[in-house]
């Protein structure tokens, strides 16, 4: 099984460490070897930092990519935002020599160079392609019977012309990954609607962001979902942090935490105390 440089990002390690812990445990159980991407920074965030300065965004992303290149490993991310930034930056730098040269002028100041070879993958994609649904099922020791809402988020699949993970309008990958645990992914209206947090909306126009979230929550409730399962700590934060105010109480789990549960990790090890919307298993 392949080995990956584990990119932590910001929200998982600094707000929901249970997501980081579950990812480490689950990957170990599934034979996916993770090596910390030491010294990495924020990806940096695609909707805010890139919107402020694309030059900064690309150079800082290239530094992260160069750290992995030095280790000779592809990157594994557990966040759609990190995946969006690092994948997009790697793609641009692999296809534009002039841009790569410009970025290397900046990296020269810190004695680094990026050759343009790092590959970037999302945790969910790695489990699906490398371990496979049958391989995952073989490691489930505590089958689940919940009805859940699969929440894909945006940057896991889009822009699909460069990512190519799954159909961006009608994907199946996360539903299949969820159902490998025995849980049932419930159909619902507007399944691909954004959580609302991205693009700096949460920070600058939180009320607008919450309107997106509220539509999602209403559709999830109507579907009979008992849990929301996401693949992005930022979507996770948006759903977890706004429900009380919006009058909902559907607990939120990252896919790694759902797998942790299904593989027998204790509730304590999932770090659920950091969740704002209470999770009662």
């Amino acid at each position: 099984m392949a080995k990956y440089a584990f990119f932590l990002g910001c929200i998982a390690p600094l707000r929901y460490p249970g997501i980081e812990k579950s990812t480490r445990e689950v990957c170990a159980a599934l034979g996916v070897e993770l090596v910390d991407l030491q010294d990495a920074s924020c990806c940096p965030a695609p909707g805010v930092i890139r919107a402020f300065s694309k030059k900064t965004w690309l150079a800082a992303a290239a530094r992260n990519l160069a750290l992995a290149e030095k280790q000779g490993l592809p990157i594994l991310t557990i966040c759609n935002g990190c995946y969006g930034s690092l994948f997009d930056a790697a793609h641009e730098l692999a296809h534009d020599e002039k841009l790569l040269a410009e970025v290397n002028e900046v990296l020269k100041e810190i004695g680094m160079e990026y050759k343009g070879t790092t590959k970037v993958y999302h945790f969910a994609e790695v489990l699906y392609r490398e371990v496979g649904i049958e391989g995952i099922k073989a490691k489930i020791t505590n089958p689940l019977s919940y009805q859940v809402a699969a929440f894909y988020g945006c940057h896991f699949l889009k822009p699909s012309n460069i990512k190519g993970v799954d159909d961006p309008e009608d994907p199946k990958i996360l539903d299949e990954l969820i159902e490998a645990t025995g849980a049932k992914s419930m159909p619902r209206k507007q399944k691909m609607l954004c959580c609302g947090a991205g693009g700096g909306l949460k920070a600058a126009f939180g009320d607008v962001a919450k309107k997106f979230t509220e539509t999602n929550l209403e559709n999830m409730k109507e579907s009979g979902a008992q849990y929301i399962i996401d693949v992005c700590p930022f979507c996770h934060l948006q759903f977890d942090g706004t429900q009380k105010e919006l009058g909902y109480s559907i607990p939120v789990l990252h896919l790694s935490q759902l797998y942790g549960l299904a593989m027998g990790m204790s509730a304590d090890d999932l770090g659920l105390s950091a969740h704002i919307t209470p999770v009662t298993l």
Binding site: L8, P13, L14, P17, G18, E20, K21, D36, Q38, D39, A40, S41, F52, S53, K55, T56, A59, A60, R63, V106, L107, E109, I110, M112, D268, D269, G271
Partner: peptide, 30 residues
């Protein structure tokens, strides 16, 4: 409590790495 390093193994735990990032932020006008 989860058995993770108290400080994540990122720029937060290495001053030299943080200084490198700072240089990038300064050099690009951020």
């Amino acid at each position: 409590k989860l058995g993770l390093p108290a400080v994540p193994p990122t720029v937060l735990s290495n001053d030299k790495a943080k200084a490198d990032l700072d240089k990038i932020l300064a050099a690009t006008g951020f």
